[in-house]
């Protein structure tokens, strides 16, 4: 999809054309979902993030410059939505009694939620991917975002630097550290990855 195809669609959206937005969503929902999934670590949260991100995108269309790349802009919206939703769910004021009922730590909860209730046995490849995804989910949000943008969304160092408003050198060194951290998390699972 070239930017020029999108810009016509976006113009129509700005004029309140619902069908145009429907089409725009169809073009980008898969990409947005993949990004959200890698950031959130599970399918359900990914859906929530994507839905909220598109609502924001729709409401914020008037701030989007027609000549810019919609995909890149949407990337940023998804990342910000993920961070906001994460902040909300962590910062919510629960009465202390209720906290006792919640499982300790995001990781454990996420592990249970990640268990797909399906009778199919996981093939080795899928197991590896699950372990990888869970490891990514254990990174801090900042590191996770870097890893996902570079390795899954295939953005360049420069594109990431632009999106996050950081110097390119900083992005490179932080990404390096994120890779080392990820490797350390995966270390115990080495038998699964023997090549």
């Amino acid at each position: 999809m070239t930017p020029s195809d999108d810009s016509q669609l976006i113009e129509r959206c700005r004029n309140g054309d619902r069908e145009a937005f429907d089409e725009l969503v169809r073009r980008y929902e898969r990409q947005a979902y993949n990004l959200a999934y890698r950031l959130a670590g599970n399918y359900d949260d990914a859906s929530d993030v994507v839905v909220e991100a598109f609502v924001r995108a729709f409401q914020g269309l008037h701030t989007f410059r027609g000549d810019a790349n919609f995909g890149t802009w949407l990337h940023r919206v998804v990342v910000n939505t993920f961070l906001d939703m994460r902040k909300r769910s962590k910062g919510r004021q629960h009465v202390s009694l209720e906290e006792q009922l919640e499982l300790d730590g995001d990781t454990l909860t996420r592990q249970i939620e990640d268990t797909s209730p399906g009778p199919q046995e996981l093939v080795e490849q899928e197991e590896r991917e699950e372990v990888l995804q869970r490891a990514i989910a254990q990174l801090s949000p900042d590191r996770r975002i870097l890893i996902v943008l570079y390795h899954f969304e295939n953005l360049s160092y420069e594109e990431i630097a632009q999106m996050l408003k950081l110097p390119v050198g900083t992005v490179k060194s932080r990404l390096n550290r994120a890779r080392l951290a990820l490797r350390e998390i995966l270390e115990p699972s080495r038998e699964l990855f023997g090549r």
Binding site: F21, D22, V25, R26, E29, R30, Y33, N34, Y37, Y43, A46, S47, V50, V51, E52, F54, V55, F58, R128, E129, L132, I147, H151, F152, R179, L180, L182, R183, L186, E187, F193, R195
Partner: peptide
């Protein structure tokens, strides 16, 4: 380790969104 990890991420498959995602998005919008 980092080299293998890099390779693994390069080979990771794209996931498919659930069938209901689109209608959910449009409903919320």
């Amino acid at each position: 380790g980092v080299r293998e990890l890099w390779q693994m991420m390069a080979e990771a498959k794209r996931v498919e969104p659930p069938v209901s995602l689109h209608s959910r998005i449009m409903q919320e919008v």
